[in-house]
Computed example of a mutant assay.
Amino acid sequence: MPAIDTTLVRRLVRAQFPRWASLPVVPLPSGGTVNAVFRLGDDLTVRLPLTASGAGDVAKEAQVLASLGCLPVAVPAVAGLGEPAQGYPWPWSVHRWLDGEPAVEGRPFAPEALAEFVLAVRSAKADAPPAYRGGPLTLLDRATRDAVEELRRTDEPFDASAALDVWTEALDAPTGPEGWVHGDLMPSNLLVHNGRLTAVLDWATAGIGDPACDLIPAWNLLTAATRPAFRDAVGADDAAWARSRGRALSMAVIQLPYYRGTNPVISANARYVLTQLGCRSARRASTGPRGSSGRAPNTSR
C-alpha cells in the first residue's frame, strides 16, 4: 500500500472527484488510530482508513447517521464516497467540513450541551446493530485485569488497588435497558466553540448498548466541578454512574501501556482519566518489565 499522504489524496481526488482537483490538501493532526484525515479546500475533509478493519466504517457511518435523523449538534455529512485506486486498497470518503476545535480534557466545557446530545442519541427509535463497545462489562474483565497488571509493572504513577476497586464496583452494578449510544465520545471526536459542543465525529461505533458508554466523557473530559451538572442533566443513577467509571477505567488502562510511547494524545487522555478516577498514585509503582503484547488494543479509533 502506498504512503497515505497528500500526494496520494491529490491523486485519488483528481481521478474520482475532478471538480475538487484544484483544491489544496492539508493533513490534519489527529490522535485517532483508524483514519488519516486531510482538509480539502475550505469546506471538505478526506478520510482514509488506515486498516482493513476500519474500511467497513465508511458505509456503516453513513447508515447510522441516516437512521438517527436530527440531532442537537452537527454531525458528518458525506459529500462523496471514494473507491480503491492508485494502490490504495479500501473505500474512503469525503465529508463536509465542520467548524470547531477538538475538545481537550480539563478545559472549560459546558456539560449541559453534551447531556442534551447524549439524551437525543439515546432516544432514537431506529433499529441498529450492537454498539462497538456496548456489551456487558464482563466481556472486558480479563483484558482489563491484565492491563491493570501490565500498567502496574511500568514506571507510571499508578494505584492498581484503587483501579481494581473501581472495576469491581462497576462489575457489581446492576445493568439497565440498552439503548442507542455513540460509543466513542473521546475528546478528539467532540468539536467545541467557546467551550460548547458544536459537532460530534466518528459514528462507526454507534449502535445499541449500555447507556453508560456515553457517560465516559464525565471522566475523560469533564472536571470535578462540571461532572455533577452533567450527571444531573442525563439523569444517571448510581448503577449507570458506576458502570461509566468502569468503562472509562478499562479504556484507560488498556490504552496507556500500549500508546504511551507512540500516541501522546491518547496517552495524555488515559492519564487524565486515571487521575479523575483516583487511580494515579503520588509515588511511582514498582518498576518492572514493561512488555507489550504487540497487538493494538480494541479501544481507540
Rank of each mutant, 00 (worst) to 15 (best):
A3H: 12
R10I: 09
V13T: 06
R14P: 00
P18C: 04
L28Q: 14
P29M: 02
S30H: 13
G32L: 15
V37T: 15
D42K: 15
L48K: 10
L48P: 03
A52I: 07
A55E: 09
G56H: 01
G56C: 05
A59Y: 03
Q63P: 01
V64D: 00
V64W: 01
A79I: 03
A79N: 06
G80T: 12
G82R: 11
A85N: 12
G87R: 15
P89D: 06
V94R: 14
R96D: 14
D99W: 04
P102F: 07
V104K: 13
F109T: 07
F109D: 01
E112L: 07
L114Q: 02
A115D: 10
K125R: 15
A126H: 14
P129V: 04
R133N: 01
G134P: 00
L140M: 00
L140V: 00
R142N: 05
A147I: 08
V148K: 15
E150N: 12
L151N: 11
F158P: 05
D159R: 01
A160L: 04
D172H: 08
H182Y: 05
H182P: 04
L185N: 09
M186N: 03
R196L: 00
V200I: 11
V200K: 05
G207Q: 04
G209A: 15
L215V: 01
I216D: 01
W219S: 02
P228E: 15
W241R: 09
S244H: 05
R245D: 05
R247V: 00
A248H: 12
A248T: 14
M251S: 10
A252T: 13
Y259Q: 11
I266S: 03
A268P: 00
N269S: 01
L274M: 08
S281W: 08
S292M: 09
R301H: 14
